[in-house]
Design a protein around this nucleic acid. Sequence first.
DNA 1: AAAAAAG
Length: 628
Amino acid sequence: MSTRTSWADLAANSAAENTTAGSSANNASVGTTSAAPARSTYVPPHLRNRVPSSDPPAPPYSGPASSNDRQGYGGPASSNDRQGYGGSRWGPPRNDYRSGYGGGGGRTGGWGNRSGGWDRGREREVNPFGDDDDTEQAFSEQENTGINFDAYEDIPVETSGENVPPPVNTFAEIDLGEALNQNIHRCKYVKPTPVQRHAIPISLAGRDLMACAQTGSGKTAAFCFPIISGIMKMQGQSAQRPLRGARTVYPLALILSPTRELSMQIHEEARKFSYQTGVKVVVAYGGAPINQQLRELERGVDILVATPGRLVDLLERARVSLQMVKYLALDEADRMLDMGFEPQIRKIVEQNDMPLPGARQTMLFSATFPKEIQRLASDFLFNYVFLAVGRVGSSTDLIVQRVEFVHESDKRSHLMDLLHAQRANGVQGKQALTLVFVETKKGADSLEHWLYVNGFPSTSIHGDRTQQEREQALRSFRSGNTPILVATDVAARGLDIPHVAHVVNFDLPNDIDDYVHRIGRTGRAGKTGLATAFFNEGNASLARSLADLMQESNQEVPAWLSRYAVRSSYGGRNRRSGGGRFGGRDFRRDSSFSRGSSDYYSGANSSGGYGASGGYGGYGSGMTSAWD
DNA sequence: AAAAAAG
């Protein structure tokens, strides 16, 4: 069955308000509104637990019959049963649950046996590939891998550290294990992306890693594959896993991210990668009832994906112990270590029973990595490899960046003009989504309301909304139902939302890195995108770094912005170092960081057209990449 | 100053 649909088809499908069977890719697995979820059919014991074999290239085979063996079929989905966006995770049961329920259809059937206890999750595992909503995601991944890989040959890559393991060119070169290889097929990953080519061998070699890489380029896979593979290998060993029913669980890997929605997204991806590997992934985040998450944890967890607050809660309740953690991954690591989060991260990593650096493997990923944050981060690392991977073409080439001078009082009408123009151009159909960033939560509410009153279907996401509202907003935006999303920085990082055609910085952030992350919500997966910023006197402090970034990205810099830039160029706290052409620079190589012999870290390698790029870094100036 | 993250 075909899994390839056009974006337009896809958007049309999603726009159909979740009432139809969805794309052809998974119509076998869905019952949708009309089909009352079938009662599980009896499956003779000898056919239970049968793992489908021989599928590469696997069509996303329909889900196992019973996705939720605890509740028969369709209670509110547990966070682990349902990864999609159709319906509240903890709300009352709804009829429009589509994925994973709808019983049967699978040629294997009968996985959902009721064997009690945690049997490493294999028998009851929901097929994450058979999910409607996951189709969209699978699609975007497909699109990601659809980036012109030939262009990757020239991508600038820089590594530094001792004895850096060499990159690979194919997944076949790496022994990730058969089950994981099958999932790679199912994800339609043909060839590793640059960050995967480099990061996976480094991680498999057991090395710690600090990586600057673009989110859309398979970053999640880059840290998930080695973790899953490593856990699979550990499973042969004795493993002092706690007995079933023990209140405390001992994950082997911990993945932290700064927002709940990003943790959800990582969990969804990790679940695909770990399908039928016997590796169990559980997500825990705030704003949702903790009891359900506790139940999931009790069923066993190898990889815990979490936001910091909820994890601290779980640690304090002694429901989670980090004693067995062998892998620690921080996504958006620079955010995780900034002022707001750092104490919590330290508490988790340093003030609990987590093994020390060296006794665990630590992987830090982000698109931007200011030098000061690198310095902080080195506390968590042991003899790590620094990796910076650029993107096809130069930074943010796929995004056309515009800056317009707009007085505070004119912003709304100016936005209205943009939206009208888009509508007139037909750019804003159901498929073209516009993401509008504002500075404050109140500002988000009032702008959303104003847009709504003025006839633009919009919704908003920010930290004062309930988690249900946040997830609903994201769903509604993704589906094109409300093609305008007003957001605070909660949505700035990591979220992979296909079809975002336009990012408007209604209020510019104060930090250029935040700008980079925000505009990175568009221009993803090889698509072009547009980013418009409203600039006025209040943004003077950003002028210099913004002008620099735009210039580096071959964007047209308005003359008036250059004048602002010159005027406000003192201080330079926001300035990028290194001309920003390239993903990043290991702070250990900076002249201000002097320690030991110079050749301790002399293993710097560089490939791709930029050479060994020595010495353009400046003191104190933030190092960033121009990619998300 | 604001945002995020626990309730």
